[in-house]
Design a binder for these strands. Sequence first.
DNA 1: GCCAACGTTGGC
DNA 2: GCCAACGTTGGC
Length: 146
Amino acid sequence: MKSEPSAYGIDDLQREKTTIWDGVRNYQARNILGEMEKGDLAFFYHSNCKPPAIVGLMEVIETNIVDPTQLDRTSPYFDAKATPEKPRWHTVKVKFTEKFAQPLSLETLKQTFNPDDFLVVKKGNRLSVMPVNNTVAQEILLLIRA
DNA sequence: GCCAACGTTGGC
DNA sequence: GCCAACGTTGGC
C-alpha cells in the first residue's frame, strides 16, 4: 500500500497506531482493498520520494469501511457523485506493526524480483494498492531480516 | 461505443 | 522538471 511520506508516512502511522486508509480514488485499487480480510498483512510503501521503498509492515484490522473523505466537501478526496446512501469508495483500517530498520528500496526490489511476480516492479504500474503473492512477501521479509 | 483531450501518478 | 504510462471525461 503506497503513500507519499510528505502526505502520510510510516512515522505518522507509528505515532497514530491505526489509520483509515482513505483517499484511494482508483477503481482497481478500491477493488483490491475490498478483497482484504481482517488479519491480512500489508507492506507500507513510500512513493514519490527518495528513495521510493518499502518501509514497514501493517495489519488490516477492519474491512469494508466507507471512506469518509468522499462525503467531506473540504477534503481533496471529496466525491460529488458519492452519497451516504450510495458511497463509491470503501477502504480498510490498518494497524502499525513494524517500521523496518532498513527500508527496502525500489532499486533493490527491481534487482531481486521479476516484474511478472511482483507488480510493484512492473513498468507503468501506478496502482496505489497492489496484491503481493506469498512467495514474494516471504522473500521480502527475509531480505528485511537479513 | 469510440477516442481525443486532459489529468494524474510516480520514477528518474 | 520531464515524461511515460496510465485512467477519466465527454462529445459525437
